[in-house]
Every structure is written in C-alpha cells, then in structure tokens.
C-alpha cells in the first residue's frame, strides 16, 4: 500500500514537474533531495485540491486565480492545480488562459497561442475545434488567442459569460488563469464570472498593503476562498533545522 502511494506520488510529481525533472534526472544526488521537496509541494497541492473539492461539493466549480502584481506565479499555480485536480479527482478540468496581456499557459503545454479564447469569442472558430486535452486525458487547455485592441472589451462581454456557461456544462472544474488585480482591471471582472477566487501571494515579495489594495478592488470580496503562498523559502540550512527541531 505504501509503495503504491509512493509510486502514485512519484507519477504525480513527474506529471506536475515534467519539464524540471527531465533536466535533472542525471544528477542523482540532487534528484533525491528534490523528490523530498517535490513531495512537500505535492502535499500542499493535495491540501488545496481537497479544499476545492470540499467547497465545490460535487458541483461544477469555476475558480479564478489571480495575484496582486505580475510575476507572482499565477500561471504556474493554475497549471499545477489543474493537473493536480485532473489527477487526483479524475474530473474533467479546463484551464483557460484569460491573461491577455501576458499569456503563458500555452507554453507550459507546448501549444501555440492561437487559436484560443479570443478567436472563440470573436466567433472565428468553434470551441470544439480549439479544446484539446493535454498529456492528461481529462485536462483540457484553452490558450488566450491572439490579442487585439478590443480583447479586453471582448473578455468582459456577455459573449465571454455565455461561453463560460457553455463550458461549465462540459467540465467539472474550470480554472481561469487571470491577470494581476493591480495591473489589469480585467481581473476583477473575470473574478465576478467565477465561483471562487484564489489569490497567489509570492513569499517575500507581495506586501500586506498591496494585498489589501487588491482585495479592495474586488466587487465580491466573499468570493475569495483563500491564499496560496508561493515560493516559500526556508533559509535555515538543513543541518541547523534538524538541530533546532
């Protein structure tokens, strides 16, 4: 049973961190050390998935993931969380890149930016033709599409809302990879389309003041389900940590 669980964890880690691990497999010493760290990461994602499962209560759930400023790890968290939900809950998951100013989801899956969300809203292409599953059969990815001057207007429009409603009927979980609250006003509008908002906070970077400011921009504050503290570092060396324990 223990071995099964370990194998499952290892597979899941490899799924989540596929890119990072490929490059490090030949560095034996480092890999072992990294695995323990990966397990820690996995445990955190498990906690997060369990929580989302709990609040979703077996219903369709749309989660918007955002941060205060850019570069705090929203896309990374969105991608990893989507994979974790797809793996752990065996549910159909759709990850939509709604960060039109800095689209990045497609890069994680080796896809092209277009055709994507914007092309569907504009009616240039049908969603069925764009939605493709990733390396996981139940995880679908929708790239942002080619941005135009009207992109922001389109993404705030009713068309977007209708599209989301349509997609909700097909996927158990929809993850919206949103822009930062204090950088792009789309974030607060997109958050209103979701059932819950997850705020990514980069440890040691995001200040309390900025978080308060970002939260104040939200129309429905109660939608914020919680915070994911990203890139938490332990600076105390391992030998000293063990001694302090």
């Amino acid at each position: 049973m223990k071995n099964q669980l370990e194998n499952y964890n290892r597979e899941l880690i490899e799924q989540i961190y596929q890119k990072e691990r490929v490059g490090e497999m030949d560095m034996e010493g480092k890999v072992e050390k990294k695995v323990s760290k990966d397990i820690e990461v996995l445990e955190e994602y498990k906690k997060l998935v369990n929580f989302i499962q709990f609040i979703a209560s077996n219903k369709q759930y749309t989660l918007s993931i955002s941060s205060t400023l850019s570069g705090e790890g929203v896309t990374h968290t969105s991608v990893n969380l989507s994979k974790a939900i797809a793996q752990m809950l065996m549910a159909d998951v759709l990850l939509i890149d709604v960060n039109l100013s800095r689209p990045a989801v497609h890069k994680y899956f080796g896809r092209s930016l277009t055709p994507g969300l914007l092309e569907i809203i504009e009616g240039k292409i049908l969603a069925e033709n764009v939605l493709k599953n990733s390396e996981l059969p139940n995880l679908y990815v929708l790239p942002a599409g080619h941005p135009t001057p009207d992109s922001s207007k389109l993404i705030r429009s009713e068309k977007m809302l209708f599209l989301l409603e349509e997609l909700k009927s097909r996927f158990n979980y929809i993850i919206l990879d949103c822009p930062a609250f204090l950088v792009n006003a789309d974030a607060s509008v997109l958050s209103s389309f979701a059932d819950g908002v997850l705020l990514v906070v980069k440890a040691g970077v995001t200040s309390r003041e900025l978080i308060s400011k970002a939260l104040s921009q939200l129309k429905e504050r109660e939608k914020v389900i919680g915070v994911v503290l990203n890139e938490v570092e332990s600076y105390i060396p391992e030998w000293l940590s063990r001694f302090l324990k």
């Binding site: 955190e44 906690k47 990374h76 503290l229 990203n230 332990s234």
Partner: peptide, 17 residues
Amino acid sequence: KTLDIPVLASIPKISGE
C-alpha cells in the same frame, strides 16, 4: 496572522523553478 483570508497552501520554492 496578518491577512483575514485563510492560507490554503504554502508552496515551497524549488531551486531552478
């Protein structure tokens, strides 16, 4: 302590990430 919203996960930094 400082935020009035729960911390759902604390993702450690992995070198090279």
